[in-house]
């Protein structure tokens, strides 16, 4: 007689947690979300780059947060987001000519941050909001880090001095950077959380649509 493994059986649980091979559905979904992210990075990235509008990276990151939170709803194996981000980053690096190493690093970091958060917390609205906030916050820090590497870390001093000079020009007593920097950080956190919420809501609705079509 074949004994069905019990849910509380330690070995059975261990097998679920340490999934070594991905199944066909997970494989297709990983490739799909990787391709989707890569496609958006390449097509929309090129349009934004040509349009020269500011905050191009932030716009792409908001979309990346939405894709990440949606993808985690469909592919929940360990390392799934890193797999998706590595596909998107590679597609961007090998498809477009020129200077693409910074977006490559950014995409990989976004995937890594999301993977860490979703490894510690289960996938739900709160973890989606948290992931979105952290990724957007990273985007803000990423551009500052890259500027520090390229121009030297003295550039931060230049920014602070420029901000404080603007404060003095509008007759603000004290350092205006102490107000402006937290406001910018809060704004990024808020936008990231909103993107996370949008992704979570979209994932739930997509599931409903797919279930309806099956029925």
């Amino acid at each position: 007689m074949k004994v069905k493994p019990h849910l509380y059986d330690e070995v059975f649980l261990f097998e679920i947690m340490m999934k070594k091979e991905i199944d066909q559905n997970e494989f297709i979904s990983t490739a799909l979300f990787g391709a989707l992210w890569g496609l958006i990075e390449i097509s929309l990235g090129t349009i934004l780059h040509a349009s020269k509008i500011p905050f191009r990276g932030t716009v792409l990151t908001i979309i990346a947060v939405v894709i990440i939170t949606i993808s985690r709803s469909f592919i929940n194996y360990k390392g799934s987001i890193i797999a998706i981000s590595s596909v998107a980053a590679t597609l961007k690096l090998i498809t477009l000519p020129g200077f693409n190493i910074t977006p490559f690093i950014a995409i990989m970091m976004q995937g890594t941050i999301a993977e860490i958060v979703f490894s510690f917390f289960t996938y739900n609205l709160v973890s989606s909001l948290f992931t979105g906030s952290l990724i957007l916050l990273y985007t803000l820090i990423h551009s500052l880090i890259m500027q520090g590497i390229f121009f030297g870390f003295g550039i931060y001093n230049v920014y602070l001095e420029i901000l404080n000079s603007i404060g003095k020009a509008i007759n603000y007593e004290g350092e205006i950077s102490l107000i402006l920097i937290p406001v910018i950080v809060f704004l990024y956190i808020f936008i990231g959380a909103s993107a996370g919420w949008f992704g979570y809501a979209t994932a739930n609705r997509t599931r409903e649509i797919l279930q309806e079509s099956v029925v």
Binding site: I22, F27, A31, L32, A83
Partner: peptide, 22 residues
């Protein structure tokens, strides 16, 4: 080296899905 399994297959399949998605 990072331990990412099936990376090559997933990347290949993603590239095949590109025109389909468009």
């Amino acid at each position: 080296k990072l331990g990412l399994k099936n990376y090559d297959e997933i990347l290949d399949h993603s590239q095949k899905l590109f025109p389909l998605l468009k």
